[in-house]
Design a protein around this nucleic acid. Structure first.
Lengths: 340, 340
DNA sequence: GATCTAGGTCGAACCGATTCGGCGAACCGG
DNA sequence: CCGGTTCGCCGAATCGGTTCGACCTAGATC
């Protein structure tokens, strides 16, 4: 049942190399022979064995996509990245090997990196100090980060400019008269582990707060609605002066809404909230969130594009793309109104 | 820079085969030699080339996961399946090759199926009549469906028993006194294309409505919040007698909530709603949805398990798993109250 | 008409692993 | 001391492609 190139060659009455050339077009083959070969191929529904080809060619036509451990749910933004990476890769006739990293999944990452299973890697959820980056670098495998480390010059990446975006959120709120603003970050563990967006958002927040001479509160919050609810409950109780929230924690937003509603605060009349989120999520919240819509589609596609370039020319200089989309006003921010 | 088994053998002063045996343990190797080999391997950080191994062994230690085209957003439930499949596969030291199918991505599916890139396939989003199933069957590649066709006996699958579950939802609502209930299905195109859950949910709905002598309305609704909103607006206008909704459309639920709120209907006081959804989603909605929580973790893990069995013994009899989890009451259903 | 060129094809080497048959040395019992 | 095992290792074949050098034939060139 296993049909290989030798079988095709035999039935077509030619050498194996001729079949190969007919397929790849790397040397001319007479029209007549080509058609004979093609007929046999279609009759037997032959496709070259990917492993054999990979072995000889030294490349697998596959890229690795390293995602956060699957057990922890992906955020909407991460999901957007995965979807567009897969999409862009398929468009370039590349397959995508999914590899959860972190925790118990070290083996998977190792296999992908050192087993030459892929031609290159796209790395998500990068930490400021990230040993996966170190591993990839020393392995010589081309890779592109969605996110960047604290020394981002000597690697290729695309990233969201959380620092600027959160800063813009704060300025926007300040323009509306808010003086007491909280930043709801992602989980304390994630931030402690050196999660880049967490740190950069905090930096942008601190900067903007200082520039506008505001009072800022920083809070970490686990990635689920329940955590968002209790986090905002606590903030409201401990900081009665707060009138607005800026956040990068997509997953907790519905919980935040709930906490505000339970506290009798209407959005945006009594309380404002703005953030950085996937457009899809922001639009589908109730009410739709005023947010900087992260262009996951463009970033994901660009990441694949950059990776393809790196694979083609591993020595090329590193390129970067830092996205800072404008804030879309969707009505969750309004003039400041001191709380009762 | 490329270190292969020959290099290891040379440095360790043994034959290549000996290195191989030391690695796989398929033949005894003296402790002394083993350690010498091991030392060299660690020094050079050697890992066997996956393509070469796959070529010789005839298997890739990789499974394919065929997902709906990436451009269309995955539902929470689908995302849950992907996550748990990846997780379970990693646990079994299998890699996962992601392949979007449908639309423009036919090539990707073909590559995966006929190029022997994978040892087996998990197929999501199966239609009642599905040519991908036909293709897989004729290719002889082991596969497991998450979902099933209209002739489900001769394939291996796990699935959610939408028919029973929606029927239970209707009975639950009828028990609460509701007499006029709508089923909000997924998109008309999806149902028209023979999307199994859509048809089976409709069948269960029709059955239960008949059994309890109710008045039932069936509506299709695209997979987003906006569509949910307009769908329910329309239902409320055209069918003023409705007091409850049963649904399998996860993505549209927030929109439905919004429509009810805009119509001045409180849930569950004035209007009830129940459905089939991923537990994570149901719990995080506001208010949390009374729903049959699909055990994505168990189903995903079982699908991988069944696939591993099929790969090991392709001739084994087909097994099935039909999940019908109990309904979790979360407070979106209450006694019927005729609308004003 | 001899030489050159280009098209078309073949045969063999090669990619990096696994695996089978076999061989020498050590060991054993009789 | 000899025949038979067992242990440890080696060499070669193999998986299914790609690719390089070589060869043959026709047609073009001078």
């Amino acid at each position: 049942m296993r049909v290989n190139i030798g079988e095709i060659a035999r039935r077509a009455g030619v050498a194996r190399s001729t079949v190969s050339y007919a397929l790849t077009g790397k040397r001319p083959v007479s029209e007549e022979t080509r058609q004979r070969i093609q007929a046999v191929i279609e009759e037997l529904n032959y496709r070259p064995n990917a492993a054999a080809r990979a072995l000889k060619e030294g490349r697998t036509r596959t890229i690795g996509l390293v995602i956060p451990p699957a057990s922890q749910r992906l955020t909407d933004m991460q999901l957007g990245f995965v979807a567009t990476v897969v999409d862009a890769a398929a468009r370039a006739d590349l397959d995508v090997l999914l590899s959860p990293s972190g925790g118990e999944h070290e083996r998977s990452f190792e296999r992908v990196v050192t087993g030459r299973r892929v031609d290159g890697v796209i790395l998500m959820e990068i930490r400021l100090e990230d040993d996966r980056v170190t591993r990839l670098r020393q392995s010589g495998l081309p890779f592109v980060g969605i996110g960047r480390t604290s020394h981002p010059e000597d690697m290729t990446w695309v990233d969201v400019d959380y620092e600027t975006l959160i800063s813009q959120c704060v300025h926007h709120l300040a323009d509306l008269g808010h003086r007491n603003i909280a930043l709801v970050n992602r989980s304390a563990e994630l931030v402690a582990a050196g999660y880049g967006p967490g740190h950069r958002a905090q930096a942008g927040f601190t900067r903007a707060v200082a520039q506008r001479d505001l009072h800022g509160v920083h809070a970490c919050c686990a990635d689920d609605a329940q955590a968002g609810l209790s986090c905002v409950e606590r903030l409201l109780a401990e900081h009665p002066e707060l009138t607005a929230i800026a956040t990068i924690n997509e997953t907790a937003i519905t919980g935040m809404y709930r906490a505000l509603a339970q506290a009798g605060l209407a959005v945006p009349k009594d309380f404002s909230i703005a953030g950085v989120a996937a457009q899809h999520l922001a639009e589908n919240l109730d009410p739709p969130l005023t947010s900087a819509d992260v262009p996951t589609i463009e970033l994901g596609a660009r990441a694949v594009e950059l990776l393809i370039q790196r694979i083609a020319d591993p020595g090329s200089t590193h390129r970067h793309l830092l996205a800072a989309p404008p804030i879309s006003l969707r009505g969750t921010t309004g003039p400041a109104k001191p709380r009762a």
